[in-house]
């Protein structure tokens, strides 16, 4: 019974989403009604011109079961000409989560984050005119995600496997063109006593000819052993993922189709 209600609600949401595709809803009033929005606009977007824009979608569970691994999917593909997407969480002790620059790939990225308490999770997409288009959603969580030790802290396996990349491309079926990868890294925030910040900083995705699909800059709140989901766009063939962490440890992996 409860599930049927959930179904009809999701059907309704799908209808709303379909309607919103037809007419973009934009405005200057925070749809998430967060007391921190003014600070966010100042500190994260440097007071640049912005509008709330439902063409920038942030998908995350309303209630996160595990604050250490909250799945977030950002989809700004409905907005043309996106050059940069900045993801942040108003009430996290470290607000910035990651930033990505879609080039040959569509403006779409899935990942997981650590959240310290219930917070809006937002994505601001910058178009060529320098304007930020902001979307987001509230995530409720029991919290503690940023000040809990990583699982790696309890074992030494990560030292042997640090920066090990595993991944796969999907070339057929409903998810053709999709690339997923996982990188072994503790992603320590520096907020746990005695454990300095140790996290991935940059990942570049290129095709075999060196043409760039996407550049991703990652900050402390990205979850341990990060998993990314992206669409490879029009390019075919293997994808190279190259990156490094804040201690200069580099990786270079090829993901074949």
């Amino acid at each position: 019974m409860k599930f049927q209600r959930t179904l009809s609600v999701s059907a309704f949401c799908a209808l709303l989403a379909a309607m919103s595709l037809a007419v973009a809803q934009t405005g200057r009033v925070d749809p998430l009604d967060s007391a921190r929005w003014g600070d966010m606009h100042h500190s994260v977007l440097a007071d640049a011109p912005f509008e709330f824009d439902d063409r920038v979608r942030v998908i995350a569970p309303t209630t996160a079961e595990n604050p250490m691994q909250v799945p977030v999917t950002v989809d700004a593909t409905a907005l043309p000409g996106v050059e940069e997407v900045l993801v942040f969480a108003d009430f996290n002790p470290i607000v910035r989560v990651l930033r990505f620059f879609p080039q040959e790939a569509p403006a779409q990225l899935g990942f997981r984050v650590k959240l310290q308490q219930s917070t809006p999770v937002r994505a601001a997409a910058r178009t060529a005119d320098g304007r930020w288009h902001v979307g987001g959603t509230w995530v409720n969580t029991v919290g503690g995600g940023c000040t809990a030790p990583s699982a790696a802290a309890a074992s030494t396996e990560w030292q042997r496997r640090l920066n090990e990349v595993s991944g796969r491309q999907w070339t057929e079926g409903p998810n053709a063109g999709r690339l997923r990868l996982r990188i072994v890294h503790p992603m320590d925030t520096g907020l746990v006593a005695g454990t300095p910040a140790f996290h991935l900083e940059e990942i570049n995705f290129t095709d075999a000819a060196g043409k760039r699909l996407m550049r991703v800059e990652t900050f402390e709140p990205v979850s341990e052993n990060p998993v990314f989901t992206l669409q490879r766009g029009a390019l075919a063939g293997p994808v190279d993922a190259r990156g490094r962490d804040n201690n200069g440890n580099a990786f270079d992996a090829r993901i074949a189709p």
Binding site: M1, K2, F3, P71, G110, R168, W170, N175, V227, T229
Partner: peptide
């Protein structure tokens, strides 16, 4: 195996045989 992202897995409907099981969703 299908390459789903965790949010897509969360959004999947329950099969009919479990839909009415308390707390299934």
């Amino acid at each position: 195996r299908d390459g789903l992202d965790m949010n897509e897995v969360l959004a999947r409907p329950l099969p009919p045989e479990f839909a009415s099981l308390p707390l299934a969703a």
